[in-house]
Design a protein around this nucleic acid. Structure first.
Lengths: 214, 214
DNA sequence: CCTCAAATTGACCGGTCGGCCAGTTCCTAC
DNA sequence: GTAGGAACTGGCCGACCGGTCAATTTGAGG
């Protein structure tokens, strides 16, 4: 352990780790209770730092919230781009793979679902450019399949993407509301896989070119 | 104007009108800026009443917000039940009619879209019973069509409803995000009708029984 | 070893906001 | 017409919270 190690040894003061601790604590609390309901003091307590330190690193509460969204959404779009890149199926299969990947991603990241909803209610436009880029690449991919006759050509590729996102996202947004009332006899309705199978079935049949066309 | 008129003449003191004025003002402001961002004093100003009067009628700020949600959601579910009742189409057509009606309802009531999103982020369970009832009636309707072979029988009716709600709701939730970045060349993508046509096309083909089955 | 900037702390301030209360006005039922 | 209760008002309070600031500690570079 020589003193020349400057990056990987934990130091007593580690501003980067501090930033991460604050971001993690704030993200959890904000998503749990909403930004306004959580005082900075509580974030500080949970992160094991002082209130002033949060202001030192992030300026204001709003800027902290922005940093949280920035971090998660960039991570999100990078992952989505990765998935789109590596999906090497062909024809409608690429849509099935994409939809299942997207659905399972949301399933593993419930926080993301909430942040998407928050982005809407707060009318937040940040990261819209990144999202646009991602869509554009998806559209190109679909257009190729359409040209090859593997996907119905009368559908706008943009709307095709929007559709399978809608089918995935809305499920996780509406699910919690039903958990409260659905009885035990209908509990199976809440299983993610069952919904996914039906949603995929509807979506795929909807975009697949019909064999016989009047 | 006899004094025996007790119900229909406007009186100098009209508690019911006051309640409505407060609810209207609060709903507009809450949805515009979020419940926490709007002080009761501002609601009072906009409604033309005193702050104390709001507490007199509704108790606390939270109870006021509850009353707002209660009012809108009961109205919403009643309208939806009405639509479901009067949709006298048959076969898959009933789904098309329902989906178009739902889509256009959301289009005319952007506040409702926001309240649905808020219901999710605030984890609000109120009115879940009403929603459940509505779903049950829709499910029965679809089951009949399925028995008659007019709709694919391998799909769960519950998920069918969920699907066309998802396709409608998500559109209006994601639209604002794109308005900021979409260039003029792609502005047509934001037109509600264009999306609706494609979404309906996908959905209907997805639930329609295939003529030839391998 | 010394220096300087960054990290970190605790104390404090000013403003805001939700809720309460004492008092006044008005409708209504007897 | 009068008593009582509901509608309505203005003023006030206390808690909370976001942000600032001066002071202290720590680490890295010269």
């Amino acid at each position: 352990m020589s003193m020349t190690e400057t990056e990987d040894t934990p130091r007593r003061r580690d501003p980067e780790a501090t930033r991460v601790a604050i971001l993690d604590a704030a993200e959890a609390l904000f998503i749990e209770s909403g930004t306004d309901a959580v005082p900075i003091s509580q974030i500080a307590r949970q992160a094991g730092v002082t209130k002033s330190l949060i202001h030192h690193h992030f300026g204001s509460k709003d800027q902290l919230w922005d940093a949280i969204k920035e971090r998660r959404f960039t991570e999100y779009f990078e992952q989505q781009a990765e998935i789109l890149q590596t999906a090497d199926a062909e024809g409608v299969e690429v849509l099935e793979v994409s939809m299942r990947a997207y659905f399972n991603f949301l399933r593993r990241n419930p926080n993301m679902v909430k942040m998407m909803a928050l982005r809407f209610v707060e009318e937040d436009d940040t990261c819209a450019a990144m999202e646009n880029d991602l869509f554009r690449r998806g559209v190109e991919r679909i257009e190729e399949s359409q040209a090859r006759g593997e996907i119905r050509a009368d559908l706008n590729p943009f709307y095709i993407i929007k559709s399978f996102i809608a089918l995935s996202l809305s499920w996780f947004q509406s699910k919690p509301m039903f958990c409260a009332t659905v009885g035990e006899t209908d509990a199976h309705l809440l299983e993610d896989e069952r919904y996914l199978e039906d949603a995929v079935a509807i979506f795929l049949e909807g975009v697949r070119p019909r064999p016989t066309n009047p």
